[in-house]
């Protein structure tokens, strides 16, 4: 009985020593973490008293990373399918639709045809459409020339694809000319989807794309009228300027 009591006491003593050792080891770990600024453990503890030579590690913030996608609208420099040099300024029109297409992708074919019908896109007055393909080193100018819709600027420019961070074709970017920034962009697989994108941007109250009009009179008003008619595709001699009857339109 006595031997058993002695053995148990010895075991308790050993376990006590083990627990004290573990507690000291744990305290050392906490102090080390606290001195590194991790904020773990007792914040009221005096770290300096237990400094083992390694000073606190300063934590500094690195440079702010750029946002995932920029909103800048750089000018587009490139060549025409005929090899001529062309540059389109993002600020030259109230609203510019940049359509990034390729000659080979099947989805793009609907847009090579569909972009020529501006009415289907719902673009406001004072806007324009520019088709941008990759440069002649990656795209066939002859193929692009065959696809180019009449009356729409087509530019071959790999740099523009990089500038606008185009992920895939067909891709579209709407540029506000006054702010010279992108106000809408994205992929679309049908002309209807693209028209929806345009309508959402145009309906956004933060943007005014209609050209600012001041009251004009005399020759300036005449020039302004001519400009509006030309922008709508009505040139000199257009039959709609000479109606035979005022009721013709309603009949």
């Amino acid at each position: 009985m006595t031997a058993l009591a002695v053995a148990l006491s010895f075991a308790v003593l050993l376990l006590g020593i083990l627990v004290v050792g573990l507690l000291r080891s744990h305290a050392d770990v906490l102090r080390a973490l606290h001195s590194l600024g991790a904020g773990i453990g007792d914040p009221s503890a005096d770290v300096d008293d237990h400094d083992h030579g390694a000073g606190p590690v300063p934590i500094t913030m690195g440079p702010r990373l750029p946002s995932e996608r920029g909103a800048a609208a750089p000018d587009v420099f490139g060549t025409t399918p005929a090899g001529d040099a062309v540059a389109v300024s993002a600020g030259a029109a109230d609203l510019t639709l940049l359509a990034f297409l390729t000659g080979g992708c099947g989805t793009c074919h609907a847009f090579w045809k569909g972009l020529s019908t501006r009415a289907a896109l719902g673009l406001p007055t004072g806007s324009r459409v520019v088709i941008v393909t990759k440069g002649p080193e990656l795209e066939s100018p002859e193929l692009v020339a065959g696809l180019a819709p009449p009356g729409i600027e087509v530019i071959l420019s790999t740099a523009a694809w990089v500038d606008y961070e185009v992920p895939a074709a067909p891709y579209f970017a709407l540029v506000d000319g006054r702010a010279q920034r992108r106000v809408g962009e994205g992929l679309a697989s049908t002309v209807e989807q693209l028209a929806g994108l345009i309508q959402r941007v145009v309906a956004d109250g933060n943007h005014r794309f209609a050209p600012a009009r001041t009251h004009l009179d005399g020759p300036e008003r005449e020039v302004d009228n001519d400009r509006a008619l030309l922008a709508s595709g009505i040139g000199p001699g257009d039959p709609s300027l000479y109606p035979t009857s005022t009721h013709a339109a309603s009949e």
Partner: peptide, 19 residues
């Protein structure tokens, strides 16, 4: 912008075509 023996450094706000 450069083509056909002409070169133009375009100021901001200008666009152009050489053909």
């Amino acid at each position: 912008l450069a083509a056909h023996g002409l070169r133009a450094a375009l100021p901001v706000g200008f666009e152009g075509r050489i053909h």
